[in-house]
Design a protein around this nucleic acid. Sequence first.
DNA 1: GTCAAAGCAATTGTATACAATAATACAGGC
DNA 2: GCCTGTATTATTGTATACAATTGCTTTGAC
Lengths: 225, 225
Amino acid sequence: MEEDVKEGTSDKYSLRGRVFSRLREDILNGKYDEGVELREIAIGEELGVSRTPVREAFRQLELEGLIKIIPNKGAYVVGISDKDVRDIYILRSRLEGLAARWAVDHITEEQMEEMEENVYLAKFHTEKGHNEQIFELDNRFHELLYEASGSKILEHQLKDYHQYVLRIRKKTLASAKRGTQSNLEHEAILEAIKNKNADDAERLAHEHMINAYRNMIDNGLIKPE
Amino acid sequence: MEEDVKEGTSDKYSLRGRVFSRLREDILNGKYDEGVELREIAIGEELGVSRTPVREAFRQLELEGLIKIIPNKGAYVVGISDKDVRDIYILRSRLEGLAARWAVDHITEEQMEEMEENVYLAKFHTEKGHNEQIFELDNRFHELLYEASGSKILEHQLKDYHQYVLRIRKKTLASAKRGTQSNLEHEAILEAIKNKNADDAERLAHEHMINAYRNMIDNGLIKPE
DNA sequence: GTCAAAGCAATTGTATACAATAATACAGGC
DNA sequence: GCCTGTATTATTGTATACAATTGCTTTGAC
């Protein structure tokens, strides 16, 4: 499952870009727990590079809020708490609503076709219980929505959040019940956009996020506030 | 006008921190125009440091969206389009509304006091036409709102956007009419929070952003869509 | 035994040296 | 004249060397 994180700002062919992506993924996937100290030399050795690209990656990770650098002391992993997840889902619920609204006016034919195909395929894989494909299709549906909004700013922001809750999302769609329900919600959003109904599109996308969050709580993946 | 930008992520006692802050300010103030290429050695010589801290600052500036680094080629100052400004103000209008809503339940006494003092002082400086102070107080009012939301995620996000449109905002509050109106709006938001009226707080903060955006258009600072 | 100060080890901060890449200029062939 | 390939140069990418800082340990006085 390659993630292709932060396209445009992270160059994956440079050592620094690879270190950045790798560390980002490791932190989001929980390899490094909250509070763990990251040492430049150790990370460098693990990835086979010197301190220079590691340091540059650290500066970026700090700006993203994934680590905290205390001058002359060290770099510490900043965890992502249940409250953070909750906040992100609330922000996302509002911004995804906005994306759906804007998509009504800005979606291209190709995007619409891919979205329809996506919904169709998702139904199939959900019936078969193909979790990996379901996860990928869900990812792609949301990315499509962001791209269809026609706003680079909004797209960038939502992709960021989308990545941020990766760890949680992975576990979420596994339950067959949520999978089926999620598909229905995607389909409803798609229909609203197709029918150029901006109010419905926004409301449905908003509710979709709230439902996703509720599902995480119901499955005990995170604690409610 | 010291900006004290992005406190917590930029350490102003290191060379890198100073390079970062300085470049950031220079770009936001328009010293470097859109598309200008920044050379590591030249910047380093100008500030009396080697390439290392300059490079690290570049990576951070890229993540903030102020410059674009093309691998093996160079770093270029990124402009901010009218559409970007518009999108950001719409996103901000929604998220600031959320921040105001949350602030109703999470604002501390100290924050409330500072906010009241802020509003009071702003009135004074507006009457006197002290543009620099007005700008600083406006900045601080919004930051206070973000901090009062009690959400690290939301605060981080809004501060990001807030910084991003600094270039534009600097010119905006200069007009006396907007200054006065802006103060009244701040006061109304403050009152709503004090009265624990979440709906009003959200609505007023939302409208405040829309008005700020409208004002930029009316003053010809940006073109409407 | 306790506290403080000196020294040591480990780590980050910065400068510099070297490698790789990209842009430019120029020469030669057609 | 124009295209192409090569050499040159300038710039970025990476590694390493050195400086500064921090934390810990050890030592000594009381």
